[in-house]
Computed example of a mutant assay.
Amino acid sequence: MINVIVSYTVKPEFVSENKANIQKFLNDFKNLDQSAFEYKVFVKEDGVTFVHYSNYINEEAQHEVLNIPSFKEFQKLRDESGLNGSHKVEILQPIL
Rank of each mutant, 00 (worst) to 15 (best):
L83G: 00
H87M: 11
K76N: 13
S86H: 02
E60R: 04
V4H: 07
Q23F: 10
K11E: 10
D28T: 01
K24I: 12
E90C: 01
E59D: 13
F74M: 13
E60G: 05
K44A: 14
E13I: 13
E38R: 10
L32Q: 03
N58K: 00
N55L: 11
K24G: 01
I95A: 04
E13S: 14
F14E: 08
S70G: 03
N21K: 11
V4W: 01
K40V: 06
A61Y: 01
G47P: 01
D46R: 10
K24Q: 13
K72N: 06
Q62L: 12
Y53G: 00
V48S: 10
S7N: 09
K19A: 08
E59Y: 10
E80V: 02
D33Q: 00
F42H: 15
V4R: 13
N31Y: 00
D79V: 14
E60L: 07
K19S: 11
F25E: 05
S16N: 13
V89M: 04
V15W: 06
L66Q: 10
P94H: 14
I5G: 06
I22Y: 07
Q75R: 14
Q62P: 02
E60Y: 07
E80R: 02
K72W: 09
F42N: 10
P94L: 07
L32V: 07
V48K: 08
I22C: 04
V51I: 08
E80P: 01
Y56Q: 03
P94W: 11
S16F: 07
E38P: 05
D79F: 15
F74I: 09
I22A: 03
T9E: 04
I5L: 15
E59N: 14
I2D: 10
N18V: 03
G47K: 04
K40H: 12
E17L: 07
V43F: 08
F42G: 14
N18L: 03
F37K: 04
Q62S: 03
K88R: 11
V4C: 06
Q34D: 10
Q23G: 11
P12M: 12
D28G: 00
V10E: 01
S35N: 05
Y8C: 11
L83K: 01
S35F: 00
I57S: 00
L96W: 05
N18R: 10
K40A: 02
K30W: 10
F74A: 08
I68G: 03
K30Q: 15
D28V: 00
N55G: 05
E73N: 10
Q23P: 09
L66E: 08
N58F: 00
E73F: 03
K88W: 01
N21Y: 15
V65S: 04
K88T: 08
S16L: 14
S54N: 06
F14I: 02
G82N: 00
I91M: 07
L77W: 12
L77H: 15
F74H: 05
S86P: 02
M1Y: 08
K72L: 13
R78V: 10
Y39L: 12
Y8L: 15
S86F: 02
F14D: 15
S86I: 04
S81T: 02
V51F: 07
E64W: 09
N18Y: 11
L32F: 02
A36S: 12
M1W: 05
K44H: 14
K30L: 15
N3F: 15
F25L: 04
E73A: 03
L96N: 09
M1V: 04
T49M: 02
A61R: 01
S35R: 05
F50L: 06
F42K: 06
Y39C: 04
V89K: 07
T9P: 03
I57E: 05
Q23K: 14
